[in-house]
Design a protein around this nucleic acid. Structure first.
Length: 361
DNA sequence: GCGATCAGCT
DNA sequence: CACAGCTGATCGC
C-alpha cells in the first residue's frame, strides 16, 4: 500500500523518487491499493485509489482529467470530489460508512474518523485474513474502541496519523473548547452588543465551532456563496438550515482562516459600519497548545488591537499525544507506519521508539 | 487563454 | 513547527 506523505519535499519533482520509500502492498490477487496518493499521476499497477477525506494535502493531484483508476471514498467526499474538482463521476465510487465492500477480493470498510465531514478510517481485510487500518487523518476517541471491526480482529499494520505524536501536544476535548468559545462570545456581546463574531475555517472542518455559537445565540451563520455551496452538500440539516446569504442578517460570520489578522478584520468590520463596531474572531487549531493553556482554557490570552480581538483556541481535529497512545494501546497492531512527520529520520526513529514503549507488555 | 502544477509562504 | 491551505509564477496544451 502506498500512502501519501505530507512532507513538502515529496512535492518536489527532484525528490519524487521518495515514493519508493513507501510500502507498496499487494493483495493475493497482486493488486496494489493506494490511499491518498493522487499526486504521482497514475501509480503503476494500481487498480484502486482510496481517498480518506477531502483536504487538499490528501487529494492533491486529483482533477478534472483523472482517468488512472477508480476512486473509493465516503459519499460526502465523493460529492465534493465531483462538485469541486469536476472529476468524471464514472471514476468515483461512494462507500457508505460501516458497510463492507468487496473490492478485488479485499473487504474494505469506511469508519468514522472524527476529523472533518466525510473523513474515514479505512479498514482492509485481505483474503488471507490479515487486516490493515489506514487512519487517514483522525482524532481518536472512545467510541472507536467499540467498533466491531476494531475489537474482534487483530490489525497487522496500522497506517497512523502522527500529526501530534509528541508529548508536548496537549489539548482539551472538543466539547470543552466549544463551551469556552460560547462563553467568550456571550461575555463579549454583553460588554459590547455591536460585536461581529468571526470564526476562521479552511474549506471543510471546524463546523461545530460556529454551529455551537449559532445554537447558543440563536443566530444564523453567514458564509459566502462558495462556502455555502460546500456546506449545503453535507446533508447536515442542522447546519444548512441555519445558513444565511447576507452578512447583515447575522452577527456570526465564517471567514477563511487566512483572513484572521487584525488589519484584515478591521477592514472587514468597516464594511458593516455602523451595524457593528467591534470584531471578535476565533482561530480554531490544534497548534494552539502550551504547557499552561493545554488544560486551562481560561488562561488563553487573546490578541487585541483596538476594536479587534483574536482568540486562538485549541480545537483540534487530530488526536492529541495521549489520545494517540490510548488508541494504539487499545488496537495493539503488529506494526505501525506513521504517515505524518516522516520526512526527518530522527523524528521517525523517535516515533517508532515511542510506539515500542506504548506496546511493551 | 486556461487549467494544472510548483516554489515560497504562513 | 506546519493544521491545510493561499498566492503568484510557470508549465503544458
Amino acid at each position: 500500500m502506498i500512502t501519501r506523505s505530507r512532507n513538502a519535499s515529496l512535492q518536489s519533482p527532484t525528490k519524487a523518487s521518495n515514493l519508493e520509500t513507501h510500502k507498496l502492498f499487494k493483495s493475493r490477487l497482486g493488486t496494489p491499493f493506494t490511499v491518498d496518493a493522487f499526486r504521482y499521476g497514475g501509480v503503476e499497477g494500481c487498480s484502486a485509489y482510496f481517498l480518506s477525506h477531502f483536504h487538499y494535502d490528501h487529494y492533491g493531484g486529483l482533477s478534472k482529467g483523472w482517468s488512472h483508476g477508480p476512486i473509493y471514498c465516503t459519499p460526502l467526499t465523493a460529492r465534493l470530489v465531483k462538485m469541486c474538482l469536476s472529476v468524471n463521476p464514472s471514476f468515483v465510487y461512494p462507500m457508505e460508512f460501516d458497510t463492507e465492500h468487496a473490492i478485488e477480493g479485499v473487504k474494505v470498510t469506511m469508519l468514522e474518523a472524527n476529523h472533518c465531514p466525510g473523513a474515514a478510517l479505512i479498514h482492509f481485510r485481505f483474503q488471507d485474513g490479515r487486516c490493515f487500518l489506514h487512519t487517514g487523518d483522525f482524532r481518536a476517541c472512545k467510541l472507536m474502541q467499540t467498533h466491531p471491526l476494531l475489537t474482534n480482529q487483530r490489525v497487522s499494520t496500522l497506517y497512523l496519523d502522527t500529526t501530534y505524536c509528541n508529548p508536548k501536544y496537549k489539548f482539551p476535548p472538543k466539547e470543552d473548547v466549544l463551551s469556552f468559545v460560547v462563553k467568550v462570545t456571550r461575555t463579549s456581546l454583553k460588554r459590547q452588543p455591536k460585536t461581529l463574531i468571526v470564526v476562521g475555517a479552511y474549506s471543510i472542518g471546524k463546523e461545530c465551532v460556529y454551529l455551537s455559537i449559532s445554537k447558543a445565540l440563536g443566530v444564523k451563520i453567514y458564509a459566502n456563496a462558495s462556502r455555502r455551496r460546500i456546506l449545503q452538500s453535507y446533508d447536515w440539516p442542522e447546519l444548512s438550515d441555519n445558513l444565511c446569504s447576507n452578512g447583515q442578517d447575522s452577527p456570526l460570520h465564517v471567514l477563511p482562516i487566512s483572513s484572521l489578522r487584525h488589519e484584515t478584520l478591521k477592514q472587514y468590520l468597516e464594511t458593516y459600519t455602523p451595524q457593528y463596531t467591534a470584531i471578535l474572531a476565533f482561530r480554531p487549531t490544534g497548534w494552539t497548545y502550551s504547557e499552561t493553556t493545554g488544560n486551562h482554557l481560561d488562561l488563553i490570552k487573546p490578541a487585541i488591537k483596538g476594536n479587534s480581538t483574536i482568540y486562538g483556541v485549541p480545537y483540534s481535529e487530530h488526536s492529541s499525544f495521549l489520545e494517540l497512545r490510548e488508541f494504539v494501546q487499545f488496537l495493539k497492531p503488529d506494526k505501525i507506519i506513521p504517515t505524518v512527520n516522516v520526512g526527518n529520520a530522527a523524528t521517525r526513529d523517535k516515533m517508532q521508539s515511542c510506539f515500542r514503549q506504548w506496546l511493551k507488555s
